[in-house]
Amino acid sequence: MTAVVPPPRTATGLRALQQLDRVEEGERLHALLWRAGAGWRMISSAVLGGGIGERAWVLNAQVSHGYRRTDPERHLADLAREAGAHGPGVGLMTAADVTGHGRADDGGAEAVATAGLGVRGWAASPAGGTPVPDRPGTINIVVALPVPLTDAALVNAVATATEAKVQALLDAGYDCSGTPTDAVCVAVRVARPGEDVHSFAGPRSLWGARLARAVHGAVRTAAMP
């Protein structure tokens, strides 16, 4: 019997974002929701749903510049539930207006970025660190690949996305590596029986290169004045 190799999956659907609108304390705020559905593994530094695991949605929510809530994880979970997102997901937040997001794709890799650059600087700074997050300015990056990756490659993909972010900021004319609260989420497919699982996602690997170009394009668009 000849083994049947499943055909490659060439689309992620990340660019089919739903824009959500709400009013909090008299301020109109927005959010972007990607209903990924089943069959996705994600790695993220997000406050909600961070780490590595199967996730069904990603919410990128705008909050006020004077955000003072001490329960951001619960806040994001409530927003997702109110929007009808079910199951485990990833929740990010930013003070940037997410309606001004950037999008890009390259060979099946798709990226969406929002850029709040009011509080920015270089990662290697002499300033002392703090035990709690800084004010929400934040560059949030969500990138999706239509293929499965190993855990090690997922970590590699986060590094590649971060390198591409810094390159995009420099190309957009900013003298910085990001903000103190930047977050990233990389989504990949859950492997199907007989499907190859990619072991590399560095910038010169097949999917790492595509991811890097997609992230660069999305961040540069979002960061442009």
Rank of each mutant, 00 (worst) to 15 (best):
M1H: 15
A3L: 13
V5A: 07
P6F: 00
P8H: 00
P8Q: 05
P8K: 03
P8M: 03
R9Y: 04
R9W: 07
T12G: 07
L14Y: 07
A16Q: 14
G26P: 13
L29G: 04
L29A: 08
H30R: 12
A31L: 06
A31I: 05
R35I: 02
A36E: 05
A38G: 06
R41P: 06
R41W: 12
I43C: 01
I43D: 00
S45K: 04
V47H: 05
G49Y: 02
G49R: 08
G50M: 11
G51E: 12
G51I: 15
I52R: 11
I52D: 04
E54A: 15
W57E: 03
W57Q: 11
V58W: 06
N60I: 01
V63N: 02
G66D: 15
R69T: 13
T70E: 15
E73V: 07
R74M: 09
H75C: 06
A77V: 07
D78R: 15
L79D: 07
A80F: 07
R81K: 13
A83E: 10
G84D: 14
G84I: 08
P88Y: 00
G89E: 04
V90C: 11
L92I: 00
T94K: 01
T94R: 01
D97N: 15
D97Y: 08
G102R: 02
G102V: 05
G102Q: 11
D105L: 11
D105N: 13
D105F: 11
A109H: 13
A109M: 13
V112M: 03
G121R: 10
A123M: 13
A127E: 15
G129L: 14
T130Y: 11
P131A: 13
P133W: 00
D134E: 11
D134G: 13
D134I: 00
T138M: 03
I139Y: 02
V143E: 09
L149I: 06
L149R: 12
L149G: 05
D151R: 15
A152H: 10
A153E: 06
V158P: 03
A159F: 11
T162M: 05
Q167H: 13
L170I: 08
L170D: 13
G173Y: 04
G173K: 05
S177H: 14
G178Q: 08
G178Y: 03
P180V: 00
V184D: 01
C185I: 04
V186D: 04
V186R: 09
A187I: 02
V190C: 14
V190D: 12
V190L: 14
A191Q: 05
R192P: 05
G194I: 04
E195V: 01
E195Q: 09
E195W: 00
D196L: 01
G202N: 14
S205N: 10
S205K: 05
L206F: 05
A212V: 07
A212C: 06
A214R: 07
G217N: 11
V219Y: 00
R220N: 12
T221P: 12
A223S: 15
